[in-house]
């Protein structure tokens, strides 16, 4: 409770002193257990904020659309997304005031390693430090036969209705025009045929590879229950193993796919190495 009081106090202060024009946070939703993003612009609107189970959408997503100076109440994943957005020049550090806390809604994210905000102007709570990710789910899946893996993936992809909720809920998907919408030429078919769905999902996973921070916003947004985290986490694991890179932890390091080293692995070549 005390955490929420601190959030409100800070938000009121920022708004009252005109340091920011809007504070992004959560308010209670209309269904049990659900919270919904909330934009407080007046001091008395701050009272509507909550900080509890269900506050799990990635709020960093809204920063690229806001032109005003904003404060944002973040948990671990939101803060990591903000770091990536700053690094990719989508927002500036000055434009956003970060109120950082420890995630109040960890129930749905068994693999979360950074529940606590990694960047903040004002820190409201201290949580446990980072936890090592064992990638147990990915390792388990890799143990299956190639046929079983293919069958599983095809089945997941065939569920997709191409509503693009995964893309739109993702802070890393900020392209003004997404490859699925371009039609001159049309890069990917607009149908929900299995082929188009597979191409969409593979390309999506590649586009966010090295930038995805595994916040799970896409998984929660998907109405059809497609297991999107499987591909995301495979990319995460490979990036970590091959390039020794975990994105969204520091403003000083490059994103994995924006840099290279002379001795990067060439195992993927014919003949390998």
């Amino acid at each position: 409770m005390i955490v929420l009081e601190k959030i409100k106090e800070k938000a009121k202060e920022l708004l009252a002193e005109n340091k920011v024009e809007v504070v992004l946070g959560f308010t209670r939703g209309t269904l049990p257990g659900k919270c919904t993003p909330y934009f407080a612009r007046k001091v008395d609107e701050v009272e509507n904020f909550v900080w509890e189970e269900g506050c799990n959408h990635n709020l960093a997503n809204y920063l690229t659309k806001l032109s005003q100076k904003a404060a944002i109440i973040v948990k671990g994943c939101d803060s990591r997304s903000i770091i990536n957005l700053i690094k990719e020049n989508q927002i500036t550090r000055e434009q956003v005031y970060i109120i950082g806390g420890t995630c109040p809604s960890t129930g749905e994210c068994p693999d979360c390693q950074h529940q606590e905000a990694v960047i903040a102007d004002y820190k409201i709570s201290e949580g446990e430090g980072a936890i090592e990710d064992s990638f147990q789910d990915v390792l388990e899946f890799e143990k299956l036969s190639p046929e079983a893996r293919k069958e599983y993936f095809y089945k997941e992809a065939s569920k997709c209705i191409r509503c693009y909720a995964c893309r739109n809920a993702c802070p890393a998907c900020y392209c003004k025009e997404c490859f699925v919408e371009e039609n001159l030429p049309s890069w990917v078919g607009k149908t929900t045929g299995i082929g188009d769905n597979i191409i969409f999902h593979l390309t999506r996973a590649m586009h966010v590879a090295g930038r995805c921070i595994d916040c799970g916003a896409c998984v929660r947004a998907c109405p059809m229950g497609v297991n999107l985290s499987l591909l995301n986490r495979k990319m995460l694991k490979d990036v970590q193993e091959m390039f020794k890179n975990v994105s969204g932890l520091s403003l000083d390091t490059e994103l994995a796919l924006n840099e290279y080293k002379q001795d990067d692995s060439q195992k993927f070549l014919i003949g390998g190495e």
Partner: peptide
């Protein structure tokens, strides 16, 4: 619309 992320869930479902 401020919090709307402009996905197609509502219309497709």
């Amino acid at each position: 619309q401020e919090k709307c992320i402009n996905c197609g869930v509502c219309s497709f479902l």
